[in-house]
Amino acid sequence: MTGATPRRDWLLHLAVIALLFGVQFVLPAYHYSNVSKIMVMASFAIGYNILIGYTGLLSLGHAMFFAAGLYGAGLTVHHLGFDPLSGFLAGLLAALCLSVAIGLVALRTAGVSFMIVTLMFAQAGYLLTLYFGEFTRGDEGFVLKENLLRVVVGDTGFNLIDPAARYNLALLLFTVCLLGSLVLVRSAVGRVLIAVRENEQRTAMLGYNAFLYKLLALVISGTMSGAAGATYALLFTYVGATFAAIQYSILPLLWVLLGGAGTTLGPLLGTLLMFYLVDVSSGQTSSYMLLVGAALIILVLWAPKGILGTLREKRIPWLP
């Protein structure tokens, strides 16, 4: 680790961001919209990865954080007439508060219990969105009106659902999340998180408060997922209970495992591959769940480190 210059991984990450910025000028309309969506979902996966990949906590309930951001932004813009930026901040705040509260309770458990508890909290969250169907319109969801999503900057303005604005704002979110995760895992705090992942008792014995570090990781992870949720609501205008359902807790797990848990670029790679795998296969069959299920089983059986994790082990040891 120490031998590698830190500049090399920064260059790699900036190159990936530059590439994503560059391809917008050549992508056809269909893929343009897809990549915007992928970048938002990859941000969700990056948040998830901080917990599973770098802290070793497997959550089965991250849909609740995504949904907290989604509804935090969606409901305030839709019902209270917040402008998009305030809506985004409301979503962020909702996810932040939720992750602190969930962390304080769920982190009292460890291992298998932690997974079950997060799964159940997420289910309670999903049921809450159905219970308050008067505001959330439950499974059906609601669509944010176009005129609510206008952002005025000085004399000019733009609309969030304008494809170019959407793409570049998604890229902005992704950039912040990706570089944020790189800074985090390269920092002293990040190293303590990895130590907790490797051996929690020994870390505690060395004088670190493992609970606080785990809480911190959960809060960063949950808030980042919430930011992705809020962005999704504002850029893609649809807010529905599907995003709070168990499926959206499993998908980030799949994306991260596919790309490589504990690698900063893994979430993007996993999301991108899985998105297009489902996209291509849905042309042939409707068995998208079969694909997800088979991918999960194949990954745990034969490639538990994912693509970038395996690559790091075999070829590129400096990959963060």
């Binding site: 497997l58 499993i250 769940m289 079969l290 299920g293 999960l296 089983i297 745990v300």
Partner: peptide
């Protein structure tokens, strides 16, 4: 434990899809 949970989630989706089909 963790690998088993992930694998049984996979199994969950496969059984659902097969029954649906």
């Amino acid at each position: 434990p963790e690998a088993t949970i992930v694998a049984t989630i996979g199994l969950l989706y496969i059984i659902q899809q097969v029954v649906l089909t």
